[in-house]
Amino acid sequence: MKSPIRLLKLGMACLISAASPAVFPAFAQSERMVAQPSRTLSYADIVDLADRAPLVANVRIRNIIVLTPDQAGTVPARHKRLFVEADVTGLIRGESGISPLVTYLYDAPTDARGKLPRYKKAQVILFARPGTRPGELQLVAPDAQIAATPEESSRVKAILSALVAPDAPPRILGLGDAFHVAGTIEGEGETQIFLRTENGDPVSLSVLRRPGQAPRWAVALGEIVDEAARPPEPGSLLWYRLACSLPAALPARAVRTLPVADAEAARADYGVVIQALGPCGRTRGPA
């Protein structure tokens, strides 16, 4: 019978071969680990990962092998690529038939001395898709593994629930046409900006100005903008769809049919929306 380490190395060879055409003649040497550093991801970071992952699972890391530079290929600075073997302790999203023992590659951050966190027996959440062989997973991003703290587990579950809700807002692809209608008195006007969505569902922004009042804006998920339309709650999925997808300024093509004065008013009103949304808050780069 093959030893557990031998089996782990055989699995690693299969997973690396599937990920890269290079030949890996030797296996990495084990390294001393340091305590795992804490890293807090933003709401947008978690949605970026969850939105792309057909499979989200809690796992307990059983074994790791640090890949040599020849095996690892291109790895971000101050990171090392690991071959990981882990036991699945819970499935948050995905097929119930997942293997109880999984393997995957992970780019782990190192400290200033080049040392890795202590991963063995660590409980983590994976954002992944099935690999080419039974038990293999492919992370949706090189860093799509986070610590499975109670707080993060609750946040991930809430985000996944929002993503699959019947009224979940669609992915925003960009801006469509903008329209502006000036009021009958100075300082009065209304702008409506249509958004392009992945599934074609209508989404629009409206900005209303009245003399002596701050501009009021709202987002509508439907053909009709009514009094019920409101700005999205910060930290909600709708807020994320807008704050992390909309450009900083209204492009010229969105106002190409408008008179100059109306186009300028539409640009100013769009700026009100962008300022109110605030920054997307990503800490790990774009999705």
Rank of each mutant, 00 (worst) to 15 (best):
V23I: 06
L237M: 00
A178F: 08
L41I: 04
I64S: 01
A13D: 12
F83S: 06
Y106H: 10
V56F: 00
S20M: 15
I5P: 14
L139V: 06
A35L: 13
L277W: 08
P247N: 04
A218C: 05
R210G: 03
I61P: 00
R39Y: 00
Q145S: 13
I146F: 00
G176A: 05
I125V: 05
C14P: 03
A35R: 05
E233V: 12
A108R: 03
A182L: 14
R196D: 11
L163M: 14
L10S: 09
M12G: 15
L160H: 05
V255Y: 06
R209I: 09
T283V: 04
G176K: 05
V34W: 12
D70P: 14
G285Q: 06
R210Q: 11
T149P: 06
A144G: 00
G90P: 12
E188C: 09
Q275T: 14
H180G: 01
L10K: 08
G183V: 07
A220K: 07
V66Y: 04
A18S: 06
T149Y: 01
T68D: 15
L15R: 07
L238S: 05
S20I: 09
L82H: 13
V255E: 12
G131N: 05
A254L: 08
A252R: 07
A72M: 10
W239M: 04
V56M: 00
I64V: 13
T103R: 10
S153G: 11
A148F: 12
Q123R: 13
G114S: 01
T103Q: 11
V272S: 13
R129Q: 11
L105V: 12
Q123H: 10
K80T: 00
V140N: 00
G271A: 03
Q36C: 13
L137W: 10
Q275C: 10
Q123F: 11
P215E: 00
